[in-house]
Structure formats: C-alpha cells, structure tokens
C-alpha cells in the first residue's frame, strides 16, 4: 500500500532535490552573499518542506540547493549517522534526488550536520552545512531583532562583552557551553550553532566552507575557507574547550575526541563514548585491521 503511494508520487515526479529551481537559485544567491560577507546573517525566503521548521529545514534547504547528481551526501545528528532525524533527512534527499550517500566523512562532498563538526579534518573539496536553531548571537543580551541588526551594523558588541564579564564575576568562569560566540574576520560576532566549544577552533582558518542555515529564523550565514574565527575571550581569561583529560572512549579508546557521557541507570556507572560515531567505527576497524596485520606478520 505504502509502496503504491510512493510509486504514484514518483510518477507525479518531484523536482530534483524537492525544491523548485527558482527557489534553489534564490537560496544559492543568498548563500553566495553570505560567503562574501563572512559571519553576516543574510535573510532568505525559507520554503515550506515536508518536515517541520526547527527540525533542520535551514540546513536542508542549503543542502538541497547545492546538491548535484554526482554529490555524495552524509547527514549527521549530534555526531551520529543513525539517529532518527539524520535518517529521515537522508531518506528525503535520496527519495527526491537518487544521489549516493555515505557514512564516511572522507567520502562525502556535502555533509549536513546538527550540533557537531566531524572529528576528522575536512578538506577544501567538502562543504559542511550546519543546522541552526538561533542564528543571533546577541539574542541573550538584546531581545529586539531591530536593535541587534543595528548593533551588528555599528559593531556595537559591548553588551555581549559585559554579559561575559558578569558571567566570570558571578560564576568564576564563562558558563556558555554550546553556541559559544565567535568573532568572524574581525567584523561580525556570530553564533556557531549549538556545537560544543570543542568544535569552535575547527572553524578558524579551515580548508572547508562552512554554511549555516536557520529555517525558522530565515537566515543564512557562512564562514568561507581560511577565515579568522576567534571565540570571544579576555586577555587574562582565555577561551577553553571542554576538558576530557583522563577519560577515553569506552569503545575505541580514543583520548582525543569529543566524548558523550553515558549513564547506566541500573548499575549507576558512567561510561564515555565518542560523540562522532563514524570516527569511532573507523578507529575500531582500523584497530582491528592493525591487529589482523600484526597477526599476519607473526
């Protein structure tokens, strides 16, 4: 029954990558503008999609507008290829484009992600598309959109700086975990989407193009390759990433990746696992191969 429905829809025919060509052109134009002005939030006409706004529609629209028949797509959600959201987005893209997908970070030409940047260093030939819930880094200090736009235009960021000052005075350190604001190209402060602080340095002088899409808030922004991205810090109170010293992944043993804390209710035990599942898998197979090789050598 369901197959019949799907088949009948196929007969009716979706446009390649679901969105109509004019809309894709608009999104690509806005993306180009975003690339031209690193860190600046470009408004765009966010389209209706068969998923709800707030579930990755911004990132999805950028991805759909960029995909060509030869692209290889990888979709991750919090570092995981297999979560429901990632699987559904991937299915939608495959259904409407028939392009190849992969779980392998190195193989992909376009990676759509939510809340993480892959552990493996990405190359200049790849594009990372990030889904953004709240594009405005100044929202925590200024509720009015009209005012935050003026603040960006005049580079008036003192309010956000005072917020950081107050944080340090009150709590002894900056309490922002994910969404740590960063200064892009010495001009715009931007919200790097809810990636952990761990991932923020990867944006700095990278080989890869980073695109950010906020579907509900209707904004696109970008960090082109080799752009300076500096997380906000005081001269005597530097930016710090999450500290995993003394911990390692319970599966692959990695000590140099971002770890998720897994809590076992019944035993009350805490274990740590790589948040990037593909990285973890590759390390495991790599380790297995190396062990296998060692055995052969003997």
């Amino acid at each position: 029954m369901i197959k019949q429905i799907v088949d009948s829809r196929k007969d009716k025919g979706y446009n390649f990558a679901f969105i109509d060509e004019q809309a894709k052109r608009e999104i690509r134009r806005k993306t180009l503008k975003a690339v031209a002005i690193p860190g600046y939030q470009v408004p765009f006409g966010s389209r209706e999609l068969p998923i709800a706004r707030g579930w990755g529609t911004g990132g999805l629209q950028i991805t759909l507008s960029l995909l060509g028949p030869d692209d290889v797509l990888k979709v991750i959600d919090q570092g995981c290829d297999g979560s429901v959201n990632a699987v559904n987005l991937r299915n939608l893209v495959v259904e409407t484009t028939k392009i190849a997908t992969t779980l392998d970070t190195e193989e992909a030409t376009i990676i759509q992600t939510r809340h993480r940047i892959p552990e493996e260093k990405m190359t200049g030939g790849q594009i990372l598309v990030l889904q953004v819930p709240y594009p405005e880094a100044l929202r925590i200090v200024e509720p009015s959109e009209a005012k935050t736009r003026v603040m960006h235009a005049e580079m008036d960021y003192s309010k956000l700086w005072v917020y950081l000052y107050e944080d340090i005075v009150r709590w002894g350190g900056i309490t922002i975990g994910a969404r740590y604001p960063a200064m892009v190209n010495k001009r715009y402060i931007m919200d790097p989407s809810p990636i952990p602080r761990w991932d923020v340095p990867k944006l700095h002088m990278a080989d890869t193009l980073y695109l950010f899409g906020a579907g509900r808030e209707k904004r696109i922004y970008a960090i082109p390759p080799h752009t300076e991205v500096i997380p906000l810090e005081f001269e005597d109170h530097k930016f710090r990433v999450e500290d995993f010293s003394g911990l390692s992944c319970g599966r692959c043993g990695s000590t140099s990746s971002f770890l998720d804390e897994i809590f076992d209710d019944s035993s009350g035990q805490k274990t740590y696992l790589c948040s990037d599942t593909n990285y973890c898998d590759r390390r495991l197979t790599g380790l297995a191969q190396r062990k296998g090789n060692a055995r052969n050598d003997r």
């Binding site: 003192s158 700086w161 005072v162 000052y165 107050e166 005075v169 810090e233 001269e235």
Partner: peptide, 26 residues
C-alpha cells in the same frame, strides 16, 4: 545604568566599548 548588570559591569561596559579586554585591568 543597566540595572540588571552589576556596578562593576556597568563601568566595564564603558571600558569594553573602548576596546579594553583585560579583565584584571577592568
């Protein structure tokens, strides 16, 4: 004054607008 910022924060705001980003100095 910004009433939801501390006294120090209020003074700091003026200093931060003049590009002083050293917490101890502020």
């Amino acid at each position: 004054l910004r009433m939801n910022f501390s006294c120090g924060g209020n003074v700091a705001e003026k200093l931060l607008t003049a590009d002083c980003y050293h917490l101890g100095k502020i």
